[in-house]
């Protein structure tokens, strides 16, 4: 189909045009890490008493004695081969660390996004259907709360209520409680792996472990999603074609869902893409509060330890994910709006 082909072509073009940006990110992070204070060679020496020679040897090992351009060139060559260097803190290749931890972050983010969308879109629609009503004001208040309470506070609050007071939630540390055994690793997404292994009690354990952190993160992004849904719904409800739909006597739900919402979904899609990318990077606080073994907390630990490679790897990963997310949104846009595909 021509629409599919043109969408694919557009996605491809978009991907190619984002490559220079990725390259820029690569150089930028490299430079940033070099100007940050703290000498990793000193940090990784055996102790405060380490002699000059020892530090010098470590510096040589790490390639820090080479001139900057050479360091950069070597770094880029490595990245091109999929080698992101070794983490000095974990002693493992960064790519391996990221591969292990990324599913945890993604699972959390996807779950949070799902929760956020499932609550924000109906809330936004409800607010738009009765602007300036009690419902609208309620949603507005909820959104304000969601944005102004920091995630670590809301996270702790949720833990306090649902784990400490009510006891509904399991011990809020990690992706799985200590009594459940890990499923065989297939995708790294616990919920999927448990299902593949047919272990429903394990699935339940992982899911209940996921609920609190996911809600904490969802709370934070409900606001932009609900507000944009409301605004988009308001404008499409006020549009000429909704008036047309009313003039031919369509049932109300059909007007709201098929005519208004389908058109309002386009800006919501855009914001969803932005929100998703922000969440991936910003969930470091949630990961810390819930001891979630994700990539963000990994990068933070590395940063505090002046460990260059993982931070660079993380930033690069984020940039890459950002590009992918934008591509996906682009493709979805092309499907949702037939006007986009003609250029």
């Amino acid at each position: 189909m021509s629409q599919f082909a043109s969408t694919a072509r557009r996605a491809g073009r978009r991907f190619v045009s984002s490559l220079p940006a990725l390259l820029g990110v690569l150089v930028f992070t490299f430079l940033l890490m070099r100007v940050l204070p703290g000498d990793p060679a000193v940090f990784f020496a055996s102790g405060p008493t380490a002699g000059k020679e020892e530090i010098e040897t470590i510096r040589k090992q790490m390639g820090l004695d080479k001139p900057m351009p050479e360091q950069l060139a070597r770094y880029m060559l490595d990245v091109a081969q999929g080698n992101l260097g070794n983490s000095l803190t974990t002693g493992q290749p960064v790519s391996k660390d990221l591969r292990e931890r990324l599913p945890a972050s993604l699972e959390l983010t996807f779950a949070a996004l799902l929760i956020a969308l499932l609550s924000a879109v109906p809330l936004g629609i409800a607010a738009a259907l009765k602007p300036n009503s009690l419902v609208d004001h309620g949603v507005r208040l909820l959104c304000a709360l969601g944005v102004c309470v920091p995630t670590f506070v809301s996270g702790l609050l949720l833990i306090y209520v649902f784990y400490y007071l009510l006891g509904y939630a399991p011990d809020p540390t990690g992706r799985i409680d200590i009594f459940t055994s890990q499923p065989p690793r297939m995708t790294g997404f616990l919920l999927i792996d448990f299902l593949l292994a047919g272990d429903l009690s394990g699935w339940w354990a992982a899911a209940s472990q996921l609920v609190l952190p996911a809600f904490t993160m969802a709370l934070f992004v409900v606001a932009p999603l609900a507000r944009i849904t409301r605004a988009a719904m308001l404008s499409s409800l006020g549009s000429d074609f909704v008036r047309t739909a009313r003039s031919i006597g369509l049932p109300r739900w059909r007007i709201v869902v098929v005519y208004a919402l389908r058109n309002a979904i386009l800006p919501v899609l855009t914001i969803t893409g932005i929100v998703f990318s922000t969440m991936l990077g910003a969930n470091v606080l949630v990961e810390k509060v819930f001891s979630w073994p994700g990539v963000a907390s990994y990068a933070l630990d590395a940063l505090l330890a002046s460990d260059y490679a993982p931070v660079q790897g993380f930033v690069l990963l984020m940039a890459f994910i950002f590009v992918i997310v934008n591509l996906v949104i682009d493709v979805l846009y092309g499907i949702a709006d037939p006007r986009i595909s003609i250029e």
Partner: peptide
């Protein structure tokens, strides 16, 4: 609406659902 009284509007393109 539609069955007994119906309307057509100014700016026909905007009056139709674009998607």
């Amino acid at each position: 609406h539609g069955a007994a009284i119906s309307m057509i509007f100014q700016n026909p393109r905007a009056a139709l659902n674009p998607i």
